[in-house]
């Protein structure tokens, strides 16, 4: 009997529209198409297959970071430490496997560990930065923006100490450059890009399908109600910051391998790029709302603008300004559209 009633009710209740998250992603996809069309008309040689591929592949590092940053942002927190973490991990991956006492130059001497061990340890350190973030944010309840700005400087500072403010690039094992140079021959698709695509797919499935992700949204939507609903908020924040640290670590190792060097000034400002593409993709800065796919679209929009600005031979300062204007307008349009849909 009850089943029958439910069936009777189901019809009117099931007339469901797409979710607000999908709406924003589609909306930003629309903006992407417009920006792309404009760029194709204005910029010479923009509308080519190779360039379109580059739009996706050139930004793999920001997109990988964006995954962690997006999840953290959905809980209503920030992770500004990812840029510094990349530098630190890259430098450590070098330092750990540089030869022992091979030179008078201190920057050529490392710990002489095998490369797999070196990257394993470097990744652990990257997650350690995440764990430090989590400790202060989840346990001591310090606002995440303060904590992660602190660890951002701390991680980069440590990288500078290890490289004496410069870089380490000598006495490396042959295996060091392999990860960064692997790729599909004849294309710009390298291992890093494949890693990025895999991570995006995995993150998308996690976000849409798992209890883990659902609880992340709950925490962001209302942390107090989440706690009273039996969610161990600290545990989830800890997991996410460690995850975000791990993603930064992977990026750091791939970048170091690609350049065969651990550079202390690597990835300056990437934390802001990752934040910007998440916001461009519709992730709410107050938490509880957003999607990885949206972030991905946001990253491509930013990529189109950057690439178009380069193609127009604008000077770097004007490139930066153009990026700022487009980003600002796009986020405004997005908020406006969402408000309109909700009212």
């Amino acid at each position: 009997m009850e089943l029958k009633e439910v069936k009777h009710l189901r019809k009117p209740l099931m007339v469901s529209k797409i979710s607000d998250e999908s709406f924003i992603t589609l909306f930003m996809l629309g903006i992407l198409v417009i920006v792309f069309a404009i760029a194709s008309v204005i910029v010479p040689n923009f509308y080519t297959a190779q360039n379109m591929l580059n739009l996706v592949t050139n930004n793999w590092f920001v997109i990988i970071l964006g995954i962690g940053v997006t999840f953290v942002l959905i809980t209503g927190n920030y992770d500004m430490s990812v840029g510094g973490n990349i530098a630190l991990t890259g430098v450590l991956s070098v330092y750990f496997c540089q030869g022992v006492n091979v030179s008078q130059n201190a920057l050529a001497n490392g710990l002489g560990l095998p490369y797999p061990v070196a990257i394993g340890l470097a990744l652990l350190c990257a997650m350690g930065v995440g764990a430090v973030n989590a400790f202060f944010i989840a346990k001591l309840k310090v606002p995440s923006i303060i904590v992660t700005l602190g660890t951002m400087m701390l991680a980069r500072g440590a990288a500078q100490v290890i490289t004496q403010g410069a870089q380490r690039n000598t006495s490396l094992p042959d295996a060091f450059g392999v990860l960064g140079s692997l790729g599909i021959p004849g294309t710009s698709i390298r291992l890093a890009v494949l890693v990025m695509i895999t991570l995006i797919i995995v993150a998308y499935i996690i976000e849409k399908k798992t209890v883990f992700a659902r609880r992340i949204y709950l925490i962001g939507a209302n942390p107090e109600a989440a706690r009273l609903s039996g969610i161990n908020v600290g545990k989830y924040l800890t997991a996410l910051y460690i995850l975000s640290g791990l993603l930064a670590g992977i990026t750091g190792i791939l970048l170091a391998s690609e350049f065969k060097a651990g550079v202390s000034s690597r990835a300056m400002g990437y934390e802001f790029d990752a934040l910007v593409i998440a916001l461009l993709g519709g992730v709410s800065i107050t938490g509880g709302f957003g999607s990885v796919l949206g972030m991905f679209v946001g990253a491509i929009i930013l990529s189109v603008v950057t690439s178009a600005a380069t193609g127009m031979l604008l000077s770097p300062d004007w490139q930066f300004t153009l990026k700022a204007i487009v980003t600002f307008l796009a986020i405004l349009a997005q908020r406006f559209a969402l408000d309109k849909r909700k009212s």
Binding site: Y217, L218, E224
Partner: peptide, 28 residues
């Protein structure tokens, strides 16, 4: 402020205290 996830849907609210019952191996 303590009970409801106001920005989520009704579907997003109802099952949150017993996710195990609507999922298998962590998948909803």
């Amino acid at each position: 402020s303590q009970g409801l996830f106001t920005i989520l849907t009704i579907r997003g609210n109802v099952p949150v205290m017993n996710m195990g019952k609507i999922s298998r191996n962590g998948f909803i």
